Amino acid sequence: MLVHADDQVGEGVPAELAVFLRGAVDDRPVRVASSICGGCGGRVFFVLVNDCGAERECSGCGSRAFIADSEDYWEEDSWETERSGPAYCPCGKDKFEAAVAFSLGGDGSVRWVTVGLRCIADGFCGVYIDWEIGYGPTDHLLTMV
């Protein structure tokens, strides 16, 4: 695994998921942040993905939140692709811990968003969606996990 001197892993990110995400992104520095429910502080989610991004629903209180800028691009017709729908682990379960790796450009702006999920049932880690960010400024994205 390539580790960049400027990598930052936030508190509460499961170690296995942090290592997996670092290995899944390019060699740019990353900030990895854990998804935490704003309603109840929960860390286990059901996740919907499509070609435009991801939305998470807390398994504890049902609060929903989009990840990064997903809401800006969430479109009805994006549900008609093979990548659309609820996230499932290969074991068939659908509850996950979630974290996001933000790949940073040389100026510190976010260039890519990579959503990683760790299955609560068996620990499987996977990248369920990633997308490029082609605008700036991007600081607001770092808090939208």
Rank of each mutant, 00 (worst) to 15 (best):
G116T: 11
F102Y: 15
R56S: 05
A101E: 02
R111S: 00
E71N: 02
S35Q: 08
L117R: 10
G12F: 01
F96N: 10
D26N: 13
L104Q: 04
G41K: 13
V44P: 03
D26G: 15
T138G: 04
T143I: 05
Y135F: 10
P137Q: 08
G23K: 12
E97K: 14
V9C: 01
Q8N: 08
R22W: 02
D130Q: 13
V127S: 09
A24Q: 13
G53F: 06
V13K: 00
Y88G: 11
V44L: 06
R22Y: 01
V30N: 10
S103N: 07
R111L: 01
M144C: 15
C89D: 04
S34M: 08
R64M: 12
G123L: 14
V115P: 06
E82R: 05
K95F: 12
L142K: 10
W74S: 09
A5T: 04
E71F: 06
C119V: 04
A65P: 07
G136E: 14
V13S: 00
P86R: 13
A15G: 10
R118W: 01
H4E: 09
D94K: 14
G126K: 11
V145K: 14
L142W: 05
A101P: 03
D130H: 12
G42K: 13
A98L: 15
P137W: 07
D139P: 02
C125E: 11
E82I: 02
W79D: 15
C119H: 03
L117A: 06
Y135E: 04
C91Q: 06
C37P: 13
E75T: 15
M1I: 11
F124H: 15
R22T: 08
V127A: 10
M144Q: 15
R31I: 14
V32W: 00
A68P: 03
F20A: 14
A98S: 13
F66Q: 03
F66D: 05
T138N: 03
V113T: 11
E75K: 15
D130C: 09
G60F: 03
G12R: 00
C58M: 04
